Structures are given as structure tokens and as C-alpha cells.
Simulated assay, not measured.
Amino acid sequence: MINGKTVVYGIIGNPVAHSFSPAMHNAAMRELGINCVYVPFCPPPEKLGEAVAGIRALGIAGVNVTVPYKEAVIPHLDELTGEAKLYGAVNTIINRRGVLTGHNTDGPGLIKALREDYQFDPGKGPAVIFGAGGAARAIAVALARSGCPELAVVNRRFEKALKLAEMVAAATGTQARAFHWDAGDRQLEEFTRRSALLVNCTPVGMAGGAVEEFPLPGDLPGKGQLAYDTVYNPPRTPFMVRGARNGAVVANGLSMLLYQGVLALEEWTGLAAPVEVMRRELYKQTGISE
């Protein structure tokens, strides 16, 4: 029951109505028996700074940050954790007595999802990452730091892909390459064929979003590969459909959403998150069975 002592958490994004995070976190908070509530906020881009200032002014204890604000939010914060500085993106903000600290649980969340739910070791082989935004940055660094031997970043703006690849190489020592989003690139095809993991970090395939073909031959992703789509709504994305058709193991972003949420909740509250309660709520929101 919401009352004068209720602690408020939330999520900032635009759009944000599709997010399953409110249902997941509210289920967790009920299970933990804490007087908290988690709500969505959808500020327009020109009001982002005012929205972040509102976190401090209203005493909101913490928020998640989703697209398109994971990088844009940084100048409005007081400090960043080492992870957030390295990733250059923030997906979690903690408010401690008016000091707003940016964290990033996206990369660690994906690594935990790969290991816990898919028994996949990032050191198994090279990885291809589609996109070069905030989530891609976190995932690229996390994979490199978790033993991935070689990375490729594929993006429509080649300069952005190159910048991310160079940052990963400099920060981790892992070999990283950049490719333009070009279906005719033979070198990209060759790299993808020998990769163990393909990760979509773009909005392509998101409900209500862009519909576009990936720059891959029709038989990729394929057998022996894990095709991981950070999009989770719809629960079966075009990237997953093509991968399953070719015999790849496929996954949507629900597991990453789960574990990044688990890590964020534990950072906010200091309590062990009820992982299975959060997982069940996510699947309930999708309307699919576990």
C-alpha cells in the first residue's frame, strides 16, 4: 500500500510504455516486503536534464535508464562508477542523499544471462555485435573482459563502430574490428561465420520499431551459434526467427533484462533479489511459457 513512507524507484526512457521493468521490479519489491514502488517516466529529450534534476528534488531513490538516454544522461549526474565510465553509458542511477551516481548493469547482466541461462562461455569464440549505442558499448566491453577472444562491431555509421572497436581494444586488449552495415561485405560474412555469438543491440525488430534486414547471408545466424537479441518485445524477434530457421540457439533480451534488473535492485536496496519471482513476472508479461 502506497503511503507517506513509500520509497519511489522508476525507469526513464522514450518510449517507455512497452517496458516490462515496472512489473518485474514491483513484483520483487512485494516479495521482499519493502515499502517501495517502481514507476515509468517518459521525459522528452529536451527535458532530460530537468527530469534528472527531479530525481534529486523529489527524493526518488533510483531509476533505470533506457533508450535513448543511456549516454545522454551522463552530463546530468554527479558521479559515475568505474564500469559506467568505461562503458560510456548508464542504465542505473542511485540517489544517495542527493548525490546521483550512474552505474551500468547491462554488460554484467548479459554475461550472467549467458552463463546462467544458456551455459555459454564468452571465451568460446569471437562475437559480432550489431549496433554501437549505449547497450552495445556495455556489452562489447563486458564480453571482452569475460574472455571473448575477438569482437566485431557492425553499425550503419561506420565511424561510431570504429570508435567503439578502438575503445574496446584499448581498454581490454581484446582484438576488435569495425564493419559498416553492408550485406555485401565478404569480410563481415567471414568473421560472422566463425563467430560463436551474435548479439543484436539495435532497435531492429522491436515492437512498433524499425523493420530491416540484418547485413548477413540468409543462412546466418546458423548452427553452432547463439543468436542473442537484446530486444524482448516481441518475444520472438525477426533476428531470432532467422536464427532458429538455420539451427542456431536463439534468445531474446528477457534474460538480460532480468539480470540487469537483479543487479540494479541489489545496488539500490542492499538486499538479495528474488530472481525467480522476477523471472516469472517477466514471462507473465510476455504471455509465453518459460
Rank of each mutant, 00 (worst) to 15 (best):
Y228K: 03
M29C: 11
G33W: 09
L32D: 05
A72K: 14
S289G: 11
H25M: 12
D185Y: 09
C36Y: 14
A161K: 10
A136Q: 14
A207S: 15
L258A: 12
R193G: 12
P40T: 04
S289D: 10
R157V: 14
A178L: 07
E159H: 15
K284Q: 06
A196W: 00
P234E: 03
Y283R: 01
A61N: 05
M24T: 13
I94L: 15
A273N: 15
P221L: 06
T101N: 10
V90L: 04
A61C: 01
I60W: 07
Q225F: 07
N26R: 04
P149V: 02
P45T: 09
A183P: 14
K70L: 00
K5T: 15
F130K: 08
R56Q: 03
L226S: 08
V168K: 08
G253H: 14
C148I: 02
A28S: 12
L80H: 11
I288D: 10
M29I: 11
C201L: 02
G173Y: 04
G184C: 05
E159K: 12
E290R: 10
V262K: 12
T269E: 11
L77P: 04
A57H: 07
G147V: 02
R245F: 07
L220A: 02
I111V: 15
A132H: 05
C148P: 00
Q175V: 13
R177W: 09
E166Y: 00
C36F: 13
V154T: 10
A183T: 05
M1G: 08
V241C: 09
I11R: 14
G10T: 02
A273I: 12
E276F: 10
K5G: 09
E83H: 09
E290Y: 10
V128D: 06
A176L: 03
L151R: 01
M167H: 15
G261A: 01
A53P: 00
V90W: 04
G98K: 07
F41R: 06
F130N: 03
V39L: 15
S21A: 03
E31Y: 08
G209C: 10
A210T: 13
R279L: 12
I2N: 10
L100I: 04
V249S: 04
S255E: 00
G102F: 03
K124T: 03
P122Y: 00
I2W: 07
R137C: 01
A251D: 00
L77D: 09
A127M: 05
L162F: 13
T81K: 07
G98A: 02
A61M: 07
A152E: 02
G98W: 01
P45K: 13
A132K: 04
G13R: 04
A144E: 01
V67D: 05
L162A: 15
V250P: 02
N95S: 05
E31L: 03
G253L: 04
V241G: 06
G218L: 15
A61H: 08
G4I: 15
E150P: 05
V90R: 08
M206A: 14
G287P: 09
I111H: 08
V199H: 02
A113N: 03
F179I: 04
Y38I: 11
A136M: 10
A23Q: 13
V231D: 08
L188Y: 07
A140D: 02
N95Y: 09
E267Y: 15
G4P: 11
C201Q: 04
Q260H: 13
G218M: 08
N252R: 07
N246H: 06
G59I: 02
E46P: 07
F239V: 03
K124H: 07
L265G: 14
L100Y: 13
